[in-house]
Every structure is written in C-alpha cells, then in structure tokens.
C-alpha cells in the first residue's frame, strides 16, 4: 500500500450516498481506477466543484493492489473542462471518448492512451464551431487507433499486402480493415469505401481534422465499426446522444 499522486482525468463522476462521489479516473501508469471522494457533494466540500467529468488534475489516494475502490485523499486541479458542457457536440464527443475508455478499461499502464485522451479533450474544447464535429470524429478514431483496434487502411487484412491508394475498397468491420481486390472479402458486415472516404478515414485515424461535407455517414461508419469491436457496443450511449445533439445544434 502506498500513497500515490497520479496524473488523472476524471472519466465519470456519480453520486454515492448523500455526500460522496465515486470517480472513474484515467491514469497513465495504472489505467482506469475507481476512487471514492468522501464529502465531495457537500456544499462546502474541500473539493468544491472540481470533481466533474473530464477534469484534469493530480489525484492522491492509497493505491492498494487487488482493491476495486480506493479512497481519494486529495485532488489538485490542473485543468477544468466545464466548457465542454456548454456545447452539446463537445459534451457528446467528450462523453464518447470517456465511454470508450470505460468499456475498454484495464488497470494496465497506458501512458500513450492517457496522452491521447488528454489532448483529445483539449482539442475538443478548443475546436471552432465549424470543426467541432470533425474534431470529435478525428479524436475518436485516433483513440481507437491508440487502443490498438484502429482500421487497417493501407494493407489488406487478409493477405497483408499493401493496397493501392487509388480506387474503392471493401472495409470489413469485423476483420478491422480493408480487403485488397484479390482477397475481395465482404462476407461479414462492412461497406465499400470510395477513395476520398478512405483518405478521410486515414486522416481521421491519425487525429487529423479534415473537412467533412457529410458527417452523418462518418458517424454511421464509426458506430458500425465500434459495434464489432466493443463489447455491447450496440448500446454505446454517448454515440446515440451525439446523433441527437447534432440535430439540436
């Protein structure tokens, strides 16, 4: 047992009893950890209003092996992200990133994933209203790639041969990438990707924000791809919320 102070992003915060909160924290060295913040819901709590989803800070708690819930001792604010709640697509996008992390949660060290989530939240917050949807898409695809199940777009998932940049190819959701012309594919769920769509997806997977005239098709593609790669992804609730938020904007 050791008192540890860790870089942490609050992925989720929910009430526990009359006065406390349970937080799901993303840390670089210990993956996702759950902590209880006692007294955090009191009006004059020492934590004040900082224990909110997407907040970035230093969390101090006794890290005990084989324990599912730790007790938070201190949380030092580095970056509040209240502004994400002031725009529905930003809020939905940040929630989607958090939900993907919670669905793939493990306690293993993943510093690159932590950095990816941190920069994704920063970029979502800073994006202009015109690019916020494309930014949410780019950051989600980039996170999926950082987690190790991003789509293979440059090599055939069957034979491993490099595929040409030109022409349309079949993207197989279950196989996790494109099939070359020789291997064909298409037995499972998937769709034909025209050349520009593949270029956009390649850029998005690298976290590059591109101009997307039809974001609806991209959200649909993301939703179907995730359905094959996340447990129970059919009910990815943040994605449903994002669909609605796009209409409400």
């Amino acid at each position: 047992m050791a008192l540890a102070t860790l870089d942490a992003i609050i992925l989720q915060a929910f009430p526990y009893s009359e006065t406390s909160k349970i937080l799901r924290l993303l840390t670089p060295g210990h993956g996702v950890q759950s902590v209880m913040a006692k007294g955090a819901r009191r009006l004059r709590s020492r934590y004040g209003g900082i224990l909110e989803p997407f907040t970035d800070g230093f969390a101090t708690f006794y890290l005990r092996q084989n324990r599912e819930l730790h007790t938070l001792s201190d949380f030092e604010l580095v970056r509040p992200r209240q502004a994400l709640g002031r725009d529905l697509v930003r809020f939905g996008g940040a929630s989607l990133l958090a939900e993907i992390m919670l669905r793939t949660a493990s306690e293993e060290a993943a510093p690159e994933v932590f950095s990816r989530v941190r920069s994704a939240l920063d970029r979502l917050e800073a994006a202009s209203p015109e690019t916020v949807e494309a930014t949410a898409l780019a950051e989600t695809w980039a996170l999926i790639t950082a987690l190790g199940f991003g789509p293979s777009l440059d090599r055939c998932v069957e034979c491993g041969e490099a595929v040409p940049d030109e022409g349309e190819l079949f993207l197989d959701y279950a196989a996790g990438g494109v099939f070359c012309k020789a291997c064909q594919g298409g037995g499972g769920g998937g769709r034909v990707l025209p050349e520009p769509a593949r270029a956009d997806l390649r850029a998005l997977s690298a976290g590059v924000v591109v101009e997307l005239p039809r974001t609806g098709a991209h959200w649909q593609l993301l939703s179907r791809f995730l359905a094959f790669h996340l447990v129970d992804a059919a009910s990815l609730r943040s994605l449903d919320f994002l669909y609605g938020a796009r209409g409400a904007q």
Binding site: G49, E52, P53, Q82, G85, R86, L88, F91, Q249
Partner: peptide, 15 residues
C-alpha cells in the same frame, strides 16, 4: 452547476 447540468441547460435553451 455540473458539466452535465450545464449541458442539460444548454439543450433546454436551444429548444
């Protein structure tokens, strides 16, 4: 006055 409360307020305002 939480992130979720703020998003709810914004949603209502737009409606």
């Amino acid at each position: 006055p939480s992130v979720e409360g703020e998003a709810t307020a914004l949603y209502l305002q737009k409606l």
